[in-house]
Structures are given as C-alpha cells and as structure tokens.
Write a protein that binds this DNA or RNA. Structure first.
Lengths: 285, 285
DNA sequence: CTACTTTACGGTATGCGTAAGCATT
DNA sequence: AATGCTTACGCATACCGTAAAGTAG
C-alpha cells in the first residue's frame, strides 16, 4: 500500500514544479521532500523523476502518476467527509415545522429529550412534509393537517388562532367579527418565514399589499411605531406579548384556526416515543 | 489526510470481526491494532466503535466507514497498478507478427536494438494490424501485404515460400508442380498459431482434414513418425531443417509465396529508425 | 478456563530539521 | 551570487512487540 502522505507530497511537487516550492507549500523542508520522493519511487518500484544535478522533473510515468494520485487523494478526502457527514447525520435530528409557533414551543423540548443531538429545523409550508418524512429528509415534522397516511404516525400537539392587530379607532375594530376578506385592500405588515401561514397571501385578499419584513427587529419596530395592521396569534396574546395601544381581534375564517400535528414515520414510532409522550393537545396554545 | 495504513487495518477488522483475527491476518499484534483503531478514530474525530470490556464492535458510523474505506483502498491499489502498468508500457515494445518466421527472425533483432525493453509479441492474421498500429496497441507489425496507407510506414523485410513435405513415393511427388487444390481430400498436419497462413484452410482444399496440433513437440513427433504430409517453408529448408526421409515440394499458388513488410506509424518512423535500418529485403528468407 | 481488549513499558526505526556540498543559471 | 537538489548527522517521536491486567462467557 502506497502511503497517502507520500502521494500528497508528490502531488504538491507536481503542482509546484520544484521541491523547494512544494516544501514551502507543505510547511516542511526540501530535504524531507527529497527523501519522500525517493521513498515513493522505491515503494512503487518505478522511476517517477528525471534527475539532473540541480533539477528534478517528472518523468513521463511521473506525469501520469501525478494524475492518478489525484484520484487517490480525492478518495481519501471523500472518505473523511463522508464518515463525518454520516456521523453528524446520526447526531442530528431534522425537523420540519409548518409555522413559527410550533418551532418556538417544541425546539426546547426536543433539545431536552434528545440530549446532545443537534436539531436541524426547517420551516416552510407543510405540503411536502410527508414526502420528506418518507425520504428520511426529516425525522419529525409538525403539520397543520393530519395526513391520514398509514406510514405516518401523528399526534395532535396544539392549536393556534390568528388575530389581526389594529390601531384603536380603526373602523374594523367596531365589527362584531372580522373575516380575511374585510382586510382586502389594506397594507399589512408581514414577517418572513411564517410557514404555511404564507399560503393565504393574496387568496381572499387579492388587493392587499403585504409589507414583507425579512428582519425580525424591523418587523417589531414597524408594528410598534407604524399604524399598519399586523397579524398575531393566540399564542402570543395568551402570553401577554401584545403591542401596547393596539387592538387584537380574532379572525373568524376557518383557515385562521389551526390544529398542529406532530408526525413521524410509523416505522420509527418507537424511536421517538419519549418525545411524543412529552407532547399533548395543549402543548402549543 | 487519513493514513491509508490505518484504513487497511480498519478494513481488516471490519472483515474479521475481532482485533485478534485481524492481527493474525495482517501479521501484526493485537495491541498494535487496538492503538491503530484508536488513532483512526482520533484522526477522524468520529467514534467508529462500540466498546465493551472485552469486545470491540463497529458502531453504525463504523459500518458505513468500513464501506467507504474500501473505496479508498481500491483507489490506492489502482494507483499502484496503473503507475506500474504505464511504466511497463513505456518499457514494452508491442509487435504483431503475421506468421511464425518473422517472429523467429525479428525478435532477436528487436531485443538487440531495444535493449532493456520487453518485447510483447502477438501472432495472428494481419487483417487488423493496421488498426492496431493506429490505436497504439502495437508499436510495430509485420504484415504480408503492403497496406499503402499514408499513416503507415513500411519496409519490405523478406520473403517466404510454402512447401509441402511428403512421404517418398507419394503420387504427388511425381507431379511437375503442386497446387493447393492437389492437396484437397488429404489429411495434413498443421501447427497452431501460424498467423495468416491459417487463412487458406478449407479455401482451396474444402475436403482436406487438417490435423491441428497445439503442441510443437507433438507436431514434430507426428511429422517425423507418421506418414501424414505437413507444411514447411523456404526458411526452414534453406537452413537444412528438414525431416529426414521426406520429400519437400514447392506449392505454386501465389498465396504460398509471400513478401513480409515491417510496419510502424509514419509519425513514429524516427523512433524506430535504428530498427528499420537493421532490416532489409533478405532479413527473412 | 478461554478468548478478547486494553494499558504499560522498553526498544527500534522512521522521519524530520539543520548544515554542508555541489551543480547549474 | 542565487537557486535547487542531495547527502550527512543528530534527534524526536511514533510505532511495534512483549508482558501483564482485567473482563465476559
């Protein structure tokens, strides 16, 4: 077996052209390289260099060997990367969240239950979450609908109701109840990365301008200081996380009242039992 | 860079299941392996084993790592094989011969001219020789026809006439001249590996049984002791290599009189000049 | 008691850096 | 003179084998 370290040095020489340059690149000395290249030739039993008194050149075989050496070095690098990646994947629990609140509530619980593991959280509309569970891209997912699929095990883990946060005196505050359609035509502040909530953009409110905020701080700043309405939810309201001087009114449309379902592959139910046991219908509320 | 030697030992353990078995396989000691496996884990920064007091098992990551390691080991073995093969190819001169006599005559000359090189000689019908020169499968070839191809440089290097060797008293010995067709219906001894000469088997002699001999000694034994006719040629006759008590009669058909042409790629003419200069029209005769 | 892994210990050998030599440009 | 390869020498350290300890079946 040819020592990979010799190949590394050989490759450096092939790239640099001189031993001294390669030595500098590898943070070692010329004599060390001279000896290493001799050893490589000896180990292979093949001459790789054309030597003159003060010049070392690759022979024809050496030129080809340098090409071949790259493959070995890449294979070795790949090995290291793959082992590390696999090991990491075993220590990572990948979760898909369909909305911010489940992530906020469940992440600390996951961290407690799966101690020492890295939580990789993803947030988007949950349309693809079942597929991602099946393809093992996610270990766990929080959905806003029960998929009713034999391969997927679910447990209801909470509920969230959407509210609209308005300036006092806004005509809408006098409505007995508010529908999404009542908001049509307004400009509403919206935070990025809100999972499936993003779905009814422009659906019942085609003439609404959503003032999309990428930055959490900017969003908060604007909700507090501007007169624009913004969304909030039962989760925040029940915790008193309200913007002072605003009126929060529930929206009655059914899509603004959602249950959350924690899901995993039925085949992996046992693996995640502890976590499922820690969750119930009122975990998110 | 992960030391390939560690991977080798790791692979052995993965195959053998215990360190002691692997140690025996690798002709080393158990403690050496214990230490090597620790070092591998440390170099990678990844746990590859599940350790109990007196048992070492691959962890899940370890099982995968063992798979990946095979690729690296194969890459390293390939490297060694490819470099050696390439080096060997530079030191090998590959020649296609269309008949045994050119091989007999030219091989010693090649060995003299290309001192230190290995001669790889191939013998078969020369129909494909031009292609093989062009594809660099052959460096040189001896053909029995001048291909008249700009890419191929040729030089006539000799001549050979085919004779039939008969028992005295055979009716054919009284013919003024013999044609191949006169041999039709007879059983004739034939040696294997005779290059293009094999071509007229069954062509003008559809009813002839050729007693094909794979072994040179068997062939010689039979030519001497059996009454069967056999082929011989001007080359052997001019050197007195005749079978006692047999009558050798020339065959008049044109395909039994052939010239030989030494050939190489026109682009490599200079490279083989010395050899071409050593050869002329009477080299093979 | 046997089979296996791991730690401890002492010796060797592998490989490095410094220094010096020598050839070429 | 400057650059570059090679050889010589002394040293550090990495690795090996033997021996011994400890544990599970």
């Amino acid at each position: 077996m040819i020592d990979i370290h010799l190949l590394e040095q050989f490759h450096a020489f092939a790239e640099c052209g001189t031993l001294s340059a390669a030595a500098e690149k590898l943070h070692t000395s010329q004599p060390a390289l001279t000896r290493a290249m001799k050893k490589l030739e000896e180990d292979l039993g093949v001459a790789l260099f054309v030597r003159s008194k003060n010049q070392l050149k690759l022979s024809e075989t050496g030129i080809h060997a340098a090409e071949y050496a790259k493959d070995v070095l890449n294979a070795d690098r790949d090995f290291e990367a793959k082992v590390k990646a696999y090991d990491r994947s075993l220590k990572t629990i990948s979760v898909g969240f369909c909305a911010p609140v489940p992530q906020t509530v469940l992440t600390p619980i996951i961290n407690t239950v799966f101690d020492g593991m890295t939580v990789s959280a993803d947030m988007s509309d949950d349309a693809l979450f079942v597929d991602r569970l099946k393809s093992h891209e996610y270990h766990l997912a929080v959905l806003h609908e029960d998929p009713k699929d034999d391969e997927i095990f679910t447990k209801k883990c909470g509920h969230e109701d959407l509210f609209i946060s308005l300036m006092p005196g806004d005509p809408l505050t006098f409505y007995p109840e508010i529908h999404l359609s009542d908001l049509d035509g307004k400009s509403i502040l919206l935070l990025n990365r809100i999972g499936f909530w993003a779905n009814f953009h422009g659906d019942k409110t085609p003439n609404t301008t959503y003032l999309l905020q990428v930055d959490q701080n900017s969003f908060h700043e604007l909700t507090v200081n501007s007169g624009y309405p913004s969304f909030t939810s039962s989760y925040y309201l029940s915790r008193g996380m309200v913007v002072k001087g605003k009126v929060n009114i529930p929206i009655v449309d059914p899509e603004c009242h959602t249950d959350y379902y924690l899901a995993c592959l039925t085949s992996e139910k046992a693996k995640y039992k502890t976590f499922f046991d820690r969750v119930n219908e009122t975990t998110i509320r």
